[in-house]
Design a protein around this nucleic acid. Structure first.
Lengths: 279, 279
DNA sequence: TACAATATTGACTAATTAGTCAAAAGTCAA
DNA sequence: TTGACTTTTGACTAATTAGTCAATATTGTA
């Protein structure tokens, strides 16, 4: 395990236990069995650590949910709810802290990072809703996204109450029903535009994906994964990467641990290219 | 203006501007033009100040919303939404900070204080919903309360975005529609019990109300208000306070500024006594 | 083994801030 | 005006913590 990973592991536990702001570098270094100096060899500052932790966590969750939803052939909304609650429950302590300290965290960067991932989540939810309920909900799509996110935030709190035992399946079904009801009968939508209007999630460029591939190539992967990564890198270096090839390689990588974010980027890239072609 | 009020005024502004945790006593004393020592003559600690500020603010909001809803003869839910958004908008900067730092605030006391006021809000909402949609929603009442609160929290965020201009009337109507839809069609409720089960808001005792009356009697009030307060105090000292008398005095006090919390307590006391009688 | 290059350490600095308290300023009755 | 009493002050303490860097340990190489 790299030193960075040791620090991140310790930080996850400590942040989860006592909050981000109140956890000191001293505590993190003591807990991970390294010295203070060593910490600053891995991270330039405490803020940088927080930023990387959030990034690490949000990529994990985002990629995981997107993967499960894409895999599902029907009832994608149910899967979306289940995947979200399950993912959050898995890292409940840290997710709880992140949610609660969300905005009290200082720093422009952290805030825009959070907004970025929220935007990604909104996009996925929007696609699912449109696929599920058809074009007729287009006039109320921004409202629906807001409402569904509201539900989820509130019910997510239940996951964080230690005594409460959440039945994720039943909860998801309950929320699907509410979403369907609202999609069906809502006439007076307050929101007619996305809330975070300014924000736009640019699609991933070939360069960005390659960069990420270089990163993960350093991890120890199965031979299949290692080769697939290499092939994708070479293909992305060409003028017109072949979608079929990328799709196949993506399938090779999907189940590989630690490759989640790569897969997410690739998936989006492929979808986008297909959309361009079909126009 | 008392020294305490000076401090509270300064704290409201500074907390709103830069957050509660990051505001120092130094800044507060500098801003309110007093010395550090003087601060500690008015408040035993920074935490005590925070606690009192939250109390001050929550009482203001709670009493105001309850007053407006009780005054309304019909469409109480609409009034509830409007009153809530309007009250929050009025103190938007501070409300925003309170909402965002909500849980990162340390201290058992602050947390239980917030839960207490949330519980009061839940009760009011529950009553309105039952009155509006009848007994048939009883099986889904806890779910509905949760859902409506979810909406409100999310849309409240819009109030805090400086560039966004919120049309409270239209928003409230939109939320009423959603509430009605959910009340009408929901069949699969996830929640069958209140979330904060342990918590219970005990009714106000005569002693508690008297205590508050003693407090406000020190403020400078109109002669009518002053006399009414005195009469209520005497009446509450008796074995069986007459409801008719209290109701009349309450009417005298309703529009008096700074009496909000007193009126709220009285209103609840009267309602409760009436409920006991009608059994 | 010897030596250089690299990695790691933890005592130290500088900055911040809640809370204290001896001294100064203000008040007021005689 | 005096002087006893109250209020207010702000320099000071003690505690905390992010970040530094000279000294030390480890590793790789010839």
């Amino acid at each position: 395990m790299t030193k960075k990973q040791k620090i991140i592991d310790a930080a996850i536990e400590l942040f989860a236990k006592q909050g981000i702001e109140t956890t000191t570098i001293q505590q993190i270094t003591a807990y991970s069995g390294i010295s203070k100096g060593a910490f600053y060899l891995s991270f330039p500052s405490k803020d940088a650590l927080i930023l990387e932790m959030i990034d690490y966590f949000m990529k994990l969750i985002t990629a995981n949910i997107d993967h499960l939803v894409n895999e599902a052939k029907k009832e994608k909304l149910t899967v979306y709810f289940e995947a979200t609650f399950t993912s959050l429950a898995e890292y409940a302590e840290f997710a709880r802290i992140l949610m609660l300290e969300n905005f009290s965290l200082t720093g422009e960067e952290i805030l825009s990072k959070m907004m970025y991932y929220e935007q990604l989540a909104d996009e996925l939810l929007g696609q699912i809703l449109l696929a599920e309920y058809g074009e007729r909900i287009e006039p109320i799509i921004y409202e629906l996204i807001m409402l569904v996110k509201s539900f989820m935030k509130s019910y997510t709190m239940l996951l964080f109450m230690p005594h409460e035992q959440v039945d994720i399946k039943r909860l998801s079904e309950s929320l699907v029903e509410k979403t369907a009801i609202l999609a069906m009968y809502t006439t007076k939508a307050y929101l007619t535009h996305p809330v975070h209007a300014g924000m736009k999630t640019d699609s991933f460029t070939k360069a960005q994906i390659c960069e990420e591939l270089v990163q993960v190539a350093q991890l120890d992967l199965s031979p299949l994964a290692k080769d697939s990564v290499q092939i994708v890198r070479e293909e992305l270096a060409t003028e017109k990467p072949r979608i079929a090839l990328l799709t196949g390689m993506l399938a090779n990588l999907e189940e590989e641990p630690k490759m989640g974010w790569c897969c997410y980027m690739l998936r989006r890239y492929i979808k986008e290219q297909q959309a361009l072609l079909s126009v």
